[in-house]
Write a protein that binds this DNA or RNA. Structure first.
Lengths: 159, 159
DNA sequence: GGCATTCTGGACATTCTTATCCATAATGAC
DNA sequence: GTCATTATGGATAAGAATGTCCAGAATGCC
């Protein structure tokens, strides 16, 4: 997964907007339906995106959301960062919060730097136009399959 | 950050053990001190690691923890996975839970695959022996600097 | 102005992660 | 066997992420 649920919701909603740009704005509840996320929650996410300047929101009868700028001027990082916080820009593997120190060089240091660079590079250089082709709709779930979380964690009972 | 706090704790504790292998076992509280994590919590993490077969724990007077196997036979993935859960093995960018579909190919698909491969490759191919050189000790914090989290999230008040 | 429509904002509920506390079981030394 | 020592397990709490609910504000149309 890597990205948080909110960041993924944001990405999917925004990708759909990029793929279906037309004159009219898209309703929040319609976005929620195609993305497969509860509408009241997506509303929060969309609100953040509007404050950030990724989306332009308009109220009233013909209102809704649309991209604030052309798709190829919006980078994924911009969409994701407000929801990922610090996680969007990974630091040192062993001392989170501190920047990687070159002097503590070890085989793992180089490898980890490459992981970070690939990850950051992806978010910084990919734009919504690049994602446009993706089909954002949620696959219909098998009805009542709660994604099956938390089976192998610290708190687990057995093994 | 990318990795959860628990996974990072685990990594640091285990890396220290790899770097300081001697005859004796290391006490849980000593590990907690060098890693800079509250001892009662690290205990849980170490317990999980022991159940998983990464550490061998022994109780009593000369007890403590040591690596269950030689450092170069323990891969980072093995240490991290019990704490990262699904996140350890990232899936499709836009449809978390579902595997990436090649037929939905788009420029972003290739780039994202590369991110995943770099990340997975790092965890799967790096062993504790590779990390041995790292200095695991926590940098002394400026006294009362609570890492400063959660300033720019969905719930934030302004901007 | 009045009204339906749509986003906005705040409070609240729920779940997961992180962290703490304490009793208990295992171990080795005597 | 007794004792100090050390890990183990369960209950619990604080915090963040996620999700829900509802009143209110803006907008366009009549």
């Amino acid at each position: 997964m890597i990205l948080s649920a909110s960041a993924t919701h944001a990405l999917r909603a925004v990708a759909w907007l990029a793929a279906h740009e037309r004159g009219e704005a898209t309703l929040g509840r319609d976005l929620a339906r195609t993305v497969g996320v509860p509408a009241p929650y997506l509303a929060k996410v969309l609100g953040t995106l509007a404050r950030t300047g990724v989306l332009a929101a308009s109220r009233g009868v013909r209102g809704g959301y649309r991209l604030a700028r052309p798709a190829r001027e919006i980078r994924l990082m911009e969409v994701v960062e407000p929801f990922e916080g610090k996680r969007a820009r990974p630091g040192c593997l062993m001392r989170p919060g501190e920047p990687c120190r070159e002097d503590a060089a070890c085989p793992a240091h180089r490898a980890w730097s490459q992981v970070k660079e690939t990850y950051l590079g992806f978010l910084e250089s990919t734009t919504l136009a690049d994602i446009r082709g993706i089909d954002t709709r949620q696959a219909k779930r098998p009805r009542g399959s709660r994604t099956h979380r938390g089976s192998s964690r610290t708190a687990r009972t057995r093994a």
